[in-house]
């Protein structure tokens, strides 16, 4: 276990030592603060009753910056496997006596941690900016709403990050991983009202549609159904990644 956590530390350092590492956090911070300021200044009627929690729900949820978190996570983790191939560092990485499964698992863990840190960072900053601009008075939203909004954004980001991760393993190309990941985020908004489509990943990715008495995107879908579909896709992506990575000849 200790040796695995050291592998995760390695992967984290590979991301964190890049000079561009702070950029996604900065983007999230700027977005959270700037939007808060804009809404306070020009929000008018709409925001006059708002509280810090309302703002947090707005920002962290899928209607706010949930998609952005997913995109940032994809952009900054797309190269985590393919980058090693591209740089040629994969040769050293795989001859150090750590199994390929452990190496890939450490990479996925680091990508998950990164996505998680982004989501938490965005939520915390939104709350701070909300408290500053709108005050701590009780508004409409409660902590539970924050949890639902942030949680569904996180699930959404994880799913598409995992998809990009798999593409990186399969194609060994950062561009392909990023492209497919981003395109999927774009397409996820489109809902084709046919019954087969409910088994596709996209309409299921946003779990927040089920909150606040919302209705299912396609008939026959429910929260449980979507979670099951998402879990199946997640397992599929990971199995495909690990099987490919373990078997691959490093040429």
């Amino acid at each position: 276990m200790r040796s695995f956590s050291l592998l995760v530390v390695n992967e984290w350092l590979k991301m964190a030592k890049k000079r561009s590492f702070f950029i996604p956090y900065a983007i999230a911070a700027v977005a959270a603060i700037a939007l808060g300021w804009i809404l306070q200044r020009w929000g008018g009627e709409m925001m006059s009753e708002a509280s810090a929690l309302d703002y947090t729900v707005l920002m962290a949820g899928m209607s706010g910056f949930g998609q952005m978190t997913a995109m940032l996570a994809i952009i900054f983790t797309a190269g985590i496997v393919s980058g090693e191939h591209g740089q040629g560092t994969i040769k050293f990485l795989l001859i150090r006596g750590q199994s390929r499964s452990a190496v890939l698992a450490s990479k996925y863990t680091a990508a998950v941690l990164f996505t998680l840190s982004l989501a938490v960072w965005l939520t915390v900053l939104s709350f701070a900016a909300g408290a500053f601009f709108f005050g701590m008075d009780a508004g409409e939203a409660g902590w539970r709403d924050v949890l639902v909004a942030g949680g569904s954004s996180l699930v959404y980001s994880m799913i598409f990050m995992t998809l990009a991760f798999m593409m990186g393993v399969l194609t060994r190309s950062t561009g392909a991983a990023m492209g497919v990941g981003m395109a999927s985020v774009m397409f996820s908004g489109i809902v084709i009202p046919k019954s087969f489509y409910k088994y596709v990943l996209f309409p299921n990715a946003d779990l927040s549609v089920y909150s606040q008495g919302g209705h299912a995107p396609i008939q026959g879908m429910s929260l449980g159904f979507s979670i099951a579909v998402l879990a199946a896709y997640l397992v599929l992506f990971l199995v495909a990644s690990f099987v490919t990575f373990k078997k691959r000849d490093i040429a």
Partner: peptide, 17 residues
Amino acid sequence: IRHIGAIIENPEFYPYM
């Protein structure tokens, strides 16, 4: 593999470290 040290083609490292 514990007993093997290797350089395969040009040694590649993480350039930003």
